[in-house]
């Protein structure tokens, strides 16, 4: 409902995923975005070869969350030497699933008229946090109790000098929702929920102490292997 949710989740700056020297002159930079329920892979293709490039196509290997291109890679004209083109590739999350190591690894193949090239990249899990990830309060309490303590992971988020209001607002713009908030002995305890595109729920308790730039994040999830990646997403969102 805030400006945050209109502008969408945090977007990392583009990074070089495929250097030209490894791809016969084709350089690919990219990042991932999530906006109003749609995931896109934002790509920048640069031709650093001496000949024009045509006939582009892209394919993903099966991956942990079923990410797949939802449309062909559209490069409308031949890419001339020294030319750069920006492409927004829509993604779906209902492709074939295969658990990757690490969980957020994505292997990509890109072809053009010269050859086929392969690269892998890691995505921040927050692109998978869905807009209806606010769990009902009663359900939250029941689920929190139901998930065994062995499935709880705790992390410190250092150097984050935000108050609980700012933390809550920032996280909500990336679909991490505050379900309840309590103050105990001067600490603000935020109870939060998020849901991944594959339906996995993650419950969080975030402790914020006024004047202390270190936050304590406790995560409970029935699939505990996602917790470290959710922690990383919290770091990424809160520190940008």
């Amino acid at each position: 409902s805030g400006v945050g949710s209109l502008s969408g989740s945090y977007v990392a700056p583009k990074a070089v995923w495929l250097p030209a020297m490894k791809a016969k002159g084709l350089e690919i930079s990219g990042t991932f975005t999530r906006q109003v329920g749609s995931i896109t892979m934002d790509l920048q293709l640069t031709n650093k070869a001496l000949q024009a490039m045509t006939d582009f196509a892209i394919q993903f290997n099966r991956n942990s969350f079923g990410l797949a291109p939802a449309a062909p890679l559209q490069v409308h004209a031949p890419l001339s030497p020294n030319q750069t083109v920006e492409i927004s590739l829509p993604l779906s999350s209902v492709g074939s699933v295969m658990k990757m190591e690490p969980l957020n690894n994505l292997q990509v193949a890109v072809k053009n008229n010269i050859d086929v090239f392969y690269f892998s990249t890691l995505y921040s899990l927050h692109i998978l946090f869905v807009e209806d990830g606010k769990m009902d309060r009663q359900m939250f309490l029941a689920t929190w109790k139901d998930i065994p303590n062995e499935n709880e992971a705790q992390f410190q988020i250092r150097d984050c000098p935000l108050n609980s209001e700012a933390v809550s607002t920032k996280l909500q713009s990336s679909n991490i929702f505050t379900v309840a908030r309590r103050t105990v002995e001067g600490q603000d305890m935020l109870y939060q929920s998020l849901k991944l595109t594959n339906g996995i729920w993650v419950l969080a308790e975030l402790r914020v102490q006024p004047g202390n730039p270190s936050l304590t994040l406790s995560l409970k999830c029935r699939a505990p292997e996602v917790s470290q990646h959710v922690h990383q997403a919290y770091e990424t969102i809160l520190k940008n």
């Binding site: 009663q138 309840a180 309590r182 305890m189």
Partner: peptide, 20 residues
């Protein structure tokens, strides 16, 4: 608004986490 007991339940949860 109906008192559904949930406010109190969250308070108890927060208390138990701070003083286990």
């Amino acid at each position: 608004e109906l008192d559904d007991g949930l406010d109190e339940a969250f308070s108890r949860l927060a208390q138990s986490r701070t003083n286990p």
